[in-house]
């Protein structure tokens, strides 16, 4: 009467662990009812465990992507090829994980397991950061959703197709700003991974931290504040001076200050906002330093980021 428990790869599990049927079970009128409920609860717990595991992997991979991206030195159309390759291979892994998770988080289960899916916030951070480095714009939630859709589709595709596509996972599709990715052939009704508003908003909150780190490192190493024409070879600089990352940070900071506080999670919001304010100030300081003592700064000097990170509030 009990359902079969399955492990991650779908093989039937023998249920003879330390707990369970070994205990002499007292049978009474209510036992069948409880057995039925137990099977349902087991299915729920197993599903959640699978999701937590996969989610942890996606988080780790997303963090690795962000580390790779932090090795970029300037904003330009194409990421350096070695970094792009690292990002692509990690995205291909993420794609497979997401495709495996997708069927389990459809409909009612999306919010049921929302707390086990924090990885999506991290993924949003990685994807928006990669987008910013290439286009100097903020990726919108709809574009992000279609990127993730695309990942899930790739992950669900047969092995050889994934290999063939892996090369341009991020390169081709994410570089064209809001252009919706053209699905070559859409499998009928394939499950997707839906991002919630929180996944996006909190992902972008974290993006400001990454931008601050990127601004600090790139300014220290190149002597200029990253921006539209920072590489000197920008084609369409126009008349007004190109936008710098400082301007972008200000815009993001203002953006979050103006948004109403979402109900339900005020504390987290306030915390994230405080960190963002701090990041903005750090980049402001960079802009000031560059103007005031620009050439004095020895090339290659990098501020001690860790020390700053560990003492939040030092500037207050």
């Amino acid at each position: 009467m009990s359902g079969t428990k399955r492990d991650w790869s779908g093989n039937a599990k023998r249920r003879d662990g330390p707990r369970g049927p070994q205990k002499p079970v007292v049978k009474n009128a209510y036992t069948p009812m409880f057995e039925a409920l137990r099977d349902e609860l087991d299915a729920h717990h197993d599903r959640r465990e699978r999701l937590v595991k996969a989610s942890r992997d996606v988080t780790a991979l997303s963090k690795k992507i962000i580390f790779s991206l932090q090795r970029v030195r300037k904003i330009e159309r194409e990421l350096p090829s070695n970094i792009q390759a690292e990002v692509d291979s990690r995205l291909a892994e993420i794609a497979k994980l997401l495709a495996a998770m997708a069927p389990e988080i459809q409909g009612i289960n999306r919010y049921r397991y929302a707390r086990s899916l924090m990885c999506l916030e991290e993924l949003a951070e990685a994807l928006t950061f990669s987008h910013y480095l290439r286009t100097q714009t903020l990726l919108g939630p709809d574009e992000l959703a279609s990127l993730v859709d695309d990942l899930v589709r790739r992950g669900a595709a047969p092995e050889d197709a994934v290999m063939a596509d892996a090369g341009d996972t991020a390169g081709a599709d994410t570089s064209a700003p809001p252009a919706p990715p053209a699905p070559t052939e859409s499998p009928t009704e394939s499950p997707t991974v839906a991002l919630t508003l929180d996944d996006y908003i909190y992902g972008v909150f974290d993006l400001t931290g990454e931008m601050m780190r990127f601004a600090t490192t790139s300014t220290a190493l190149t002597g200029t504040l990253a921006g539209g024409a920072s590489d000197g070879s920008a084609d369409e600089a126009g008349d007004e001076p190109p936008r710098t990352i400082l301007h972008d940070m200000h815009e993001l900071g203002t953006f979050f200050e103006m948004l109403p506080v979402p109900p339900g999670n005020r504390v987290q919001w306030e915390k994230k906002l405080a960190v963002t304010r701090q990041s903005v100030r750090k980049v402001e300081r960079l802009g000031y330093d560059r103007i005031v003592r620009g050439s004095e700064r020895p090339k290659g000097w990098v501020p001690d980021l860790d020390a700053e990170d560990q003492a939040p509030g030092e500037e207050e």
Partner: peptide, 8 residues
Amino acid sequence: AGFQVLNL
């Protein structure tokens, strides 16, 4: 006894 049937 019923509750003991559950894997919590």
